[in-house]
Amino acid sequence: MKYSQRSQTMLSRTAESLFWLGRYLERAEATARVLDVHLHDLIGTTSMHQLRWANEIQALVGMDISETTFDELATILSLSKNHPSSISMCYELAWQNAKSARDTVSLELWESINVTYSRLRRTFVTDLGHSPHAFFAWIKDRSAMARGISDTTMNRDQAWFFLHIGRSLEQLDGTARLLRVKLVDPDGEDWVVALRCLGGHEAYIRAVQRPVDKAKAIEFLLTDTSFPKSILFLAESITDSLGELSRHIVDPPHKPTVPPSLARLVANLRYPRINELADQADSYLAEVEEALIDLGQTLDSSLFAPAPESITSHTQRLEVWI
């Protein structure tokens, strides 16, 4: 406001595109991590094990469970043009959203996404066969690069916060889904794998300084505010971003508000009433789910404001003249 006569105008559609850009970039990275972790642990395992992990991966990315091999699954999740969690698809959608918001994302961010996308388009199954690990590492690098570029080249105005909320919301969803899958898992020993799926094994060791066990891992993933993918960290980060947005959005009726369910989640995780958080994990996850739904609604209804014109149009039927 200091420099220009007009405050920065943010189209509702652009805000929505930035939000989804954040989500898809994050989802691509999450898929790459899950595949990479399981690929690494496959070496020297039994086929029973492999099948179980294939099922677990399906659950983690929200696929219907079916019998498949890890290789098949890895191919689909890397390069499929239909599956919504495949890396290729995520980048396609990220690219489309970036393009639609091209007057708002920084040139460097756009360029980085454009390059990743066009290289992915020239990537085929045979290429993947050579070195899937290198492919996943490349995706992680490209995602880290996109994140770094957006953080260093974009003003902390509405655009960045929408992007950031999209990213955080996707991560929150990812951590919650991981917990959900692992909780129902009868065999609770591979929490190390779970932590590594989020790139959090090292973080756990640093923060907890104890061997990994189920109860501590759950507590860590729910409440550790030093770990950037814990539920509490992300819920607070989203809360803060909404606060920042409402600082940028001057007009009172359009200021976004923090949904009560999100505020409750933060409070309950910050000040848990019982010591054994792990026993209550299910109810926390239910709260996360509620908060995610409410968040989506807040954004949809007050900020993204879908155009009524997206409803089918008709021409008024003409009168017949006699």
Binding site: E309, H314, T315, Q316, R317, L318, E319
Partner: peptide, 20 residues
């Protein structure tokens, strides 16, 4: 022709209309 003098024209978003 009729196209230039149509007594009522327009478009609407939502449900369908019956003849007037």
């Amino acid at each position: 022709d009729y196209g230039d003098v149509s007594p009522f024209t327009g478009i609407f978003y939502g449900g369908e209309s019956s003849s007037p």
